[in-house]
Design a protein around this nucleic acid. Structure first.
Lengths: 338, 338
DNA sequence: TTGTACGCGTTATCAT
DNA sequence: ATGATAACGCGTACAA
């Protein structure tokens, strides 16, 4: 399995390396006769193209990086699938890294991408990313698309979902069903996404002349167990609450547990809306009504945009905000108001 | 942001490129004085190492591939996280591809890896992979670890879970609770994993002098709805069945639906065990007793093994079979025999 | 420590 | 019209 080189193929086909190269990439004008000779030689010798050599020569590569903080989260799994599809369409290879919210790992990955001459990247930055990270990234001059987590830095392309609209839809739904005591559960304090979602929730309440209560807005970790814990505290203190908009489906699932534990029935005497539409949402009993953000679509759009940047598209930074939709299932009951 | 090369750094530090290279990689003996000079030059010029050039020269790379068929599946998400950790520990970059069970995409990915001089790969092969795929892969002489889906080809390293033991545990549990009419539900006909799980199930029955009935072993798609459909047919025909080992948790969830629909209560007059321990398992009511396989650990072990192969470990192919554990929850009731 | 040939494909320039 | 020549991208490692 020794490496067959272009030169060897050239010799075999009795042409120059230039010719072989041109045949390989369908460039230049090659007579059909020589083309055939070359193709035969290529095949006979079992040539394997050396992308590394080409990349070195071209000062680029066909490799892009994807940085997530939690690949375990089905939401990011979906997104990754979407991006992966798009990358494959353009013959780009995808590097994956999982920062697990560590700024250090994140930096290490980006450095690695630079060393490897990656031609672009898609980032969902770690929560506590220092501004310096973004500054140096800009200086690098390599296409980078931010996803999911809203950025205030307008110099980057961004693809994400409309958090505000999402919780507006959710809250609206609850209001229509007649609820007036609606809580907001989940998300971490310093998250911009969360701020936006709270915005949608509270604005909708106000629109209906209901005062949002800060005591009914509680934060939690992105886990079912913490969602359950937080909800228990909340409901114990404010049993008058009859509905909740949750920051995430995972949290909503935790809330469900708590409700049951406290003798209440989600979908019957309590209405619950999630956010994300992860697969579990449709499996749980009662199936969770939730805001669907088409994670796969975010991945695809990010891929499209990245590819265009790689192709040289130098329009000003874009913000692609995908509209979420409300998926009505069973967790809010079957109100007559549809 | 023009590319700074080793040569430029060398000139700046008034040394040779060889020296700079050695400083960069901590090789050879360099006087502390020159080292300092070089480091300063490196820093002053903002040098970025060109891994591509190094890879070309070394005829290797620091890049490995991971092929899955469904990154969306939380199980594979976990596994990927485990592998990713291990890769990062060794400064390897991870290429990810999602075959979606397409042999074509799979082949394309592996070809791509070859062109890019990847130094190894972890594969969860598509279901209908032609033998030729494996044959040519072997010839490539590049470390490849198979994961999760059992292989009959003993020439490959393999990391997976002990399907046989898993269903033995599950079946044992049911037997101890006093059940004797136990079905096996789910999995697709041509799956080796399934064969192994059926093996664990039937061997345990036989051990207890119970004849496994082929009519009580039914297959299904990997979805809740098909699990429900299949179960309904089965239970209608054989109402004497009081327990089931399911091929997957998803299927078990479907079976639960059916039971309820037929007026039976999982955990009370029917005992159900799943396999995988997906997150939903702990969420459903009653919470699902299931066989848990440490997905992340599979990823880690695969990473470890791959790394050792890359390092030149040429022991004969290994099979690392991780023992699953039974997670007892509520879906089998609370038998006195514990 | 250094000089330099080398890994391998690319492409601009030149030749027929 | 076709194809060849050779410099080039940049880090590595061996001989000196």
């Amino acid at each position: 399995m020794s490496t067959v080189t272009l030169a060897q193929v050239a010799k075999q086909a009795e042409v120059s390396t230039a010719t072989v190269s041109m045949v390989l990439r369908n460039r230049g004008r090659i007579s059909d006769a020589t083309r055939q000779r070359v193709l035969k030689a290529l095949d006979d010798l079992g040539y394997v193209y050396n992308q590394t050599a080409a990349n070195l020569r071209n000062r680029t590569s066909n490799q892009v990086g994807l940085l997530l903080h939690d690949i375990t989260n089905p939401f990011y799994g979906e997104m990754t699938a979407g991006l992966s599809q798009e990358m494959e369409r353009h013959d780009l290879l995808l590097f994956l890294a999982n920062s697990e919210e560590s700024g250090e790992r994140q930096q290490k990955f980006v450095d690695s991408l630079m060393r490897n001459n990656a031609c672009g990247m898609v980032l969902c930055a770690a929560r506590e990313t220092p501004p310096l990270f973004f500054e140096t990234l800009k200086r690098r001059n390599i296409p980078a698309i931010m996803v999911v987590r809203p950025m205030d830095d307008v110099d980057f392309d961004f693809v994400g979902t409309d958090n505000f609209l999402g919780t507006q839809l959710a809250t609206q739904h609850l209001l229509r069903l007649g609820h007036t005591h609606i809580a907001f559960i989940g998300g971490s304090e310093n998250s911009i996404s969360r701020a936006q979602r709270i915005g949608g929730y509270s604005s909708k309440l106000l629109e209906h002349r209901i005062q949002p209560k800060s005591e009914w807005v509680v934060s939690s970790l992105a886990s079912q167990s913490d969602g359950a814990r937080v909800a228990e505290e909340l409901f114990r203190q404010y049993p008058e609450i009859t509905a909740a908009v949750c920051y995430q489906d995972i949290v909503a699932l935790g809330v469900m547990q708590t409700l049951r534990k406290m003798g209440r029935q989600p979908g019957v005497d309590f209405a619950l809306v999630g956010f994300d539409d992860i697969t579990e949402a449709s499996l749980v009993q009662p199936a969770l009504t939730t805001v669907s953000v088409a994670a796969k679509e975010i991945g695809r759009k990010a891929g499209e945009l990245l590819f265009s940047r790689i192709q040289g598209n130098d329009e000003p930074p874009k913000r692609i905000i995908l509209p979420p939709t409300l998926v009505v299932r069973e967790s809010c009951g079957f109100g007559s108001l549809r």
